[in-house]
Design a protein around this nucleic acid. Structure first.
Lengths: 246, 246
DNA sequence: CGCGCTGTTGAAACTTGTCAAAGTTTGTGG
DNA sequence: CCACAAACTTTGACAAGTTTCAACAGCGCG
């Protein structure tokens, strides 16, 4: 039976682990590639690297060997001041590509660690660059991913630079909601894998302020929070918080 | 005489306008390319596009045709909220590459306009992508430039998320100082091409707070400000403001 | 020469941070 | 499996920092 790949559990399992068989392929780096291109990319990917909660994917300063794509799980990235202040620069989930900040200087400029047990695909960067010279679609997709990271960062700058605490919190919840939805999960019910302090760091707020904002939303009937479990009860109401004129 | 390119004013002028003759080539996209590679890139660049103060290089939403490199002058980029709030996302000077945020979605996600009369090199993006498939050094340099933009944005996020007003202002002045120095200008004496309001938008502060921070620095003897002319009198003192422990 | 834009300064109001205490959950080791 | 410790969360009261509002000064352009 193992001669029939369709029936072999081993091969089935293998199939699931290549980009062409990956449910994330339209969210991840291979988006837009055709079958043959996918096959090429598959050869450049080391699949299924598990990381445990609390593990560093890489510490800040580590030399760049590979980019990583998240297959499952949840991670955070942060940068540190000289004087030890931490700024969380992003929370990452399935399909996100990590390590882009290391390309410029050859070493990782941020810490990235797993907030829950996760699985990653490793993409050796030199190979990726080489493949992207052969495959224009891959090249374009790599450019798009980097550009979108820049746009995302500008959005965070807007949030940090011009929004009040509750606006930031609403924007944060809506952003998570949208990202979960894009991955086929409920946009209204999810688990926050990070602490209040980490949310606060990302949003430029203290953890007490985050906690108060969540309590306030709950009092207003916009959400239901219990621990890290959140249910968004009134998406429109949350959106209205972002435009204080209305 | 025109047969001798070394003596012809026309040709001399032309020479100055190609990347290989450009004083910015080590700061700009061609950094790290050899003579032959430079010649290739030259063919993909439309040189010397002038823009006047107040002109939009492109408005937010414009389709991506080209990236732009600043040859001379000073520009700002900003994003707008739905409700009209502006967030300045960056100030740009000679050698900086503009438009990277448009690659992801095919149209510019930010407004960019000239704060003084400026000159730009236009780099049609399709050609640039094509050339970067042929020239690994160019490909790498493009990746590096995009990655550094991400790192820069993370630095701004750190600033916006965890620094107080005077720390932000000190960081801003020191950053400008360093960038002017890298371009061969005085690191201690320069003209701010932007208004207090624009600085404030970039730093997540109101213009009055910016003004007060500058006045306070002047009172402490750290700088001398008159209008938009700034002299940094005590770089170490400014740096000390960034690490409040000392 | 005056009008408008830009910048400065003061006082009051508001938002968020800080500190402190207590409650809750999670993880560990007995 | 329970007990205890550690980590995380919530809430209140107060302090600090920043914004808001307002008035005025300076510069630059027509």
């Amino acid at each position: 039976m193992p001669s029939n790949p369709c029936l072999s559990p081993v091969d089935l399992n293998k199939l699931k682990t290549v980009c062409s068989g990956c449910s994330l392929r339209e969210l991840c780096l291979p988006a837009g590639l055709d079958q043959e291109e996918l096959a090429q990319v598959d050869r450049a990917v080391n699949r299924r690297q598990p990381v445990k909660r609390g593990d560093h994917l890489y510490p800040a300063g580590a030399p760049l060997h590979s980019l990583f794509a998240i297959r499952s799980g949840f991670m955070k990235s942060s940068v540190l001041n000289e004087d030890g202040r931490e700024q969380v620069t992003g929370f990452h989930m399935m399909g996100d590509l990590l390590g882009l900040d290391a390309i410029g200087g050859g070493c990782h400029m941020s810490d990235t660690l797993a907030l829950e047990d996760s699985e990653l695909c490793e993409l050796p960067f030199e190979q990726l660059e080489a493949h992207s010279r052969e495959l224009p679609s891959l090249q374009q997709q790599l450019h798009r991913v980097m550009s979108r990271e820049i746009v995302r960062d500008h959005g965070v700058m807007l949030l940090l630079g011009s929004m009040k605490a509750e606006e930031r919190m609403a924007a944060f919840l809506l952003n998570l909601s949208q990202r979960f939805a894009a991955r086929g999960y409920s946009p209204t019910e999810f688990v926050l894998r990070m602490t209040r302090g980490e949310i606060g760091s990302y949003l430029g707020l203290k953890l007490e302020t985050v906690s108060r904002a969540l309590s306030s939303f709950q009092d207003q009937g916009l959400i239901a929070v219990r621990q890290r479990h959140v249910r968004l009860l009134d998406l429109e109401g949350l959106r209205a918080l972002l435009d204080p004129r209305r």
